[in-house]
Amino acid sequence: MELGVILGDVHSTLSPREHLDGLLRQVEAAQRNGVRYIVMGHHYLYGNLRWLQPIPTLARLAAELDPGVRIGTMVVQVPLFHPVALAEELATLDILTRGQLVVGAGAGYRREEFTAFGVDFEQRFAMMDEALQIVRMLWTQDEVTFHGRFWTLDGVQTHIRPWQDPHPPIWIGALRDSGVRRSARLGDAWPVTPETRTSDMRRMFDVYAKARRKHGLPLVSRHPLRREIVPGATTEDAFRRFESMARDRLLAYARRELVTRDTEALTARFRQVAEKEAIIGTPDECLTQLRDLAAQAPVDPVIVRAQWPDMTSDDVVAYLDDLGRDIVPGLDEIVSIDARSLETHAESEHPTPTGAAR
């Protein structure tokens, strides 16, 4: 099982120089400690917190990549781009990384971002659906004609094709069954959110597999998982560490319209929330939890957040060094269950009756 890091936001009071220097230092420490994926989220107008825009930032980070390390968006808000611009910018980024790009795509969840761009928030899922169809066509065809609800292209000649053939992997984020079906139809994997419980994961993987079969698409072996891994000298130390790192930021997510976050629960019952959403404990306890997870859910890589807004660069590097020393060697030996074996097991438990249509 591989480890990834998602690069986060910082306080806007941090100078641009400090922000960039800290980012480069984090990427160096991550790779030195065995991280194989470096990904970024995507937001606009984030108030007192600063997100660097992912496509230009990842283009800069491409120059720092070790062999075999992939970078990606997780996730880019597709409806806020014209699909031609999105296709060409991502194809360019794939070329600059020599084919090491993963494209995480989503519909967005903050209404104010859509209002600022003059984009109808209520149409965001339909827009994402149409845009991703166009992006795939622009990546795989020499000439594209498309007549949709939101965009029209008539015989346009494509001129930037990705390095990867036919295109970079597309991870499509989703919170509900309808979104998982969309992910199965339009993408190559479903990046599981940190709030998704293991029991729900298994059910939603089944939803994903059924949708793939419906559209005649091959099953996906494993899916990326966003989940914090927080080791400590003792279990209590690990919980204190995670609370100091993440509590205020998770509360901010709840206040910024992320529907999977509950302000009251995070305030009154942070430890209970953390136990459900994160891998926390001594290094041995963390690895035991990861083995249990890998035996139940087809997930790989696991993507953690190393930097939270109140952490210094020294804090971030110390955390990554802990992961590299205490977690990564054991993680390298864990092999997650294959989603196709889950499907085979489900079919053996519930065989299709003779003569029944599949």
Score class of each variant (00 low, 15 high):
Met1Ser: 14
Met1Glu: 03
Glu2Tyr: 08
Val5Glu: 00
His11Ile: 06
Ser12Pro: 00
Leu20Trp: 13
Asp21Cys: 10
Asp21Gln: 13
Val35Cys: 06
Arg36Gly: 08
Gly41Val: 04
Tyr44Leu: 13
Arg70Gly: 05
Thr73Val: 06
Val78Thr: 14
Phe81Asp: 07
Phe81Glu: 02
Pro83Thr: 07
Leu86Lys: 07
Leu93Asn: 01
Leu96Ser: 03
Val102Ser: 01
Gly106Arg: 00
Gly108Ser: 07
Tyr109Cys: 01
Arg110Pro: 07
Asp120Leu: 00
Asp120Thr: 05
Phe121Trp: 11
Ala131Cys: 13
Ala131Tyr: 10
Leu132Phe: 08
Leu132Trp: 10
Gln133Tyr: 03
Arg136Met: 04
Met137Pro: 01
Trp139Ala: 04
Gln141Thr: 02
Gln141Pro: 01
Leu153Ser: 00
Val156Asp: 06
Val156Pro: 11
His159Ile: 14
Pro162Asn: 02
Gln164Asp: 05
Gln164Gly: 06
Pro168Val: 11
Ile172Thr: 10
Gly179Glu: 10
Val180Glu: 00
Ala184Cys: 09
Ala189Met: 07
Pro194Met: 03
Thr196Asn: 05
Asp200Val: 13
Met201Leu: 14
Phe205Tyr: 07
Ala209Pro: 01
Arg213Gln: 12
Arg213Trp: 03
Lys214Thr: 12
His215Gly: 06
His215Pro: 05
His215Glu: 15
Val220Glu: 15
Ile229Gly: 05
Ala233Cys: 09
Thr234Pro: 09
Thr235Cys: 13
Glu236Arg: 14
Asp237Tyr: 11
Phe239Gln: 00
Phe242Gly: 00
Ala246Val: 08
Val259Lys: 10
Thr263His: 09
Leu266His: 04
Leu266Gly: 08
Ala268Gln: 14
Ala278Met: 10
Gly281Val: 09
Leu287Gln: 03
Leu287Met: 00
Thr288Glu: 14
Thr288Lys: 11
Leu290Val: 04
Arg291Gln: 12
Ala297Val: 15
Asp300Cys: 04
Val302Pro: 02
Val304Gln: 01
Gln307His: 13
Leu331Asn: 01
Ile334Glu: 02
Val335Tyr: 00
Ile337Arg: 09
Ile337Trp: 01
Ala339Leu: 06
Glu349Ala: 12
Thr352Cys: 14
Thr354Val: 15
Thr354Ser: 15
Arg358Asn: 08
